[in-house]
Amino acid sequence: MKHTLSVLVENKPGVLARVSGLFGRRGFNIDSLAVGPTDDERLSRMTIVIDGETHSLEQVAKQLHKLINVLKINDLDPGESIERELMLIRVNAQPAVRAEVVEIANIFRAKIVDVARSTVTIEVTGTAEKTMGLLDLLRPYGIKELVRTGKIALARGSKEEK
């Protein structure tokens, strides 16, 4: 089962190496990891998606807590959090099929952010289900290149206020 951990860390050199190194050393697999500074520039928030049994998840959290630069760890409940990832997809779009490709993007409320003679680049934001759904539909046209941010997530405000 996949878990999404939201980890608040001090924004200091080497923190990412400490966190990612710990996962590797302890044999925990990271599905995705996204990190950036928070509103307070001394702090960063990492969103880490891991594949783990409940038992090892507890170990992950405990080991993470032992890192001096880690301040707070939340195991986000998918029902009570907002999860997004951003994907950029460069897809074949010869003039004959370009309209179809654009139409598919529109259905997903994705944006065309770059156009070339034979390709378009589409930006899509949403849950993994949405971004993967778009990707599945675009695949028959030929995906030239793809990049995704990995998931970022926040607990819902209602959850925080409880």
Binding site: P13, G14, A17, R18, G21, R25, I68
Partner: peptide
């Protein structure tokens, strides 16, 4: 040295 000792220290520093 900082990188090498990450997994074998409680904490480590590289003073810049």
């Amino acid at each position: 040295t900082f990188g090498v000792t990450l997994p074998i220290t409680k904490h480590n520093y590289l003073i810049k």
